[in-house]
Design a protein around this nucleic acid. Sequence first.
DNA 1: TCGATTTATATGATTTTTCATATTTTCAGC
DNA 2: GCTGAAAATATGAAAAATCATATAAATCGA
Lengths: 151, 151
Amino acid sequence: MSETQNDTFVTGYLLYLLAASSEQASAQFHDHVRARGLRVPEWRVLACLVDNDGMMITRLARLSLMEQSRMTRIVDQMDARGLVSRVADSNDKRRVRVRLTAEGRDLAEALVKDARRHETRLLSALADTDAARIKGVLRTLLDVLDRPDAT
Amino acid sequence: MSETQNDTFVTGYLLYLLAASSEQASAQFHDHVRARGLRVPEWRVLACLVDNDGMMITRLARLSLMEQSRMTRIVDQMDARGLVSRVADSNDKRRVRVRLTAEGRDLAEALVKDARRHETRLLSALADTDAARIKGVLRTLLDVLDRPDAT
DNA sequence: TCGATTTATATGATTTTTCATATTTTCAGC
DNA sequence: GCTGAAAATATGAAAAATCATATAAATCGA
């Protein structure tokens, strides 16, 4: 007798599929990140800063999918550790610009390289049609969610 | 001058797209869940149990995407609150079967109904082709991730 | 059938994350 | 140039989540 019975709802529910695939797809790479001595939120910060160094805390938080107060502390710790430094914005004194240090940049670039490799492997495990579609579909979903309706 | 500059990596990275779309797609419904007086993990437990009442803690944890020790405590609290009850498994005394109470079932069924409505709205905001593809693509990804290779 | 291993759950201690709110600076309208 | 609102960041206290490990029951092999 199979233990798995009629999984009528959860298993086919869009939000479950999204959460589960995000979770599982990330698990492997997140292990790698931790093996490199970083926590996942720190890796996210580094990745954002490689794209666009000197982001302010708020924007970094939005992009890294975390709360502002949390980002403040993450940046504190990364600063203390020498991966980033806080720079006052001359135009707007409220803002804190976060910049990669040389060490931070090296680590960030190495990890981005690893991430790209990992992504390639992941995509190549999918059938061509799925691999070709997945990012487009997700981007569309994100676009729709940005528009203030969709509930 | 646009604040958004050359987002070369993060914005197009599969794991980011997955995390961000999961996060954002869920945000609205999770607010609804909290408005109904539940935390997200509790909602997940209820949803699992509607599909398959009497699941054991370990399986519930896997399906709800959380750790076992955490699930033990969530079930404690839901039990204390009268939403579920713990039932000893007669065949295997290590196991704890978690069953919905009448109250738990009512709440669970109401929320599943809400979730279905929300999902429908979400899908209808996508173009037909995307709506038709998204679940399939995610399921494929999950399948691939289950197979022990794909790194 | 004994002992070693694995599986299922529980729990104390710690770390992470959130929540509410304070502080500082900018901005908008008058 | 004031005044009130909004934006950016920080921080204490609380809640949630993780980690390591304990306990207990089942299973597998010699």
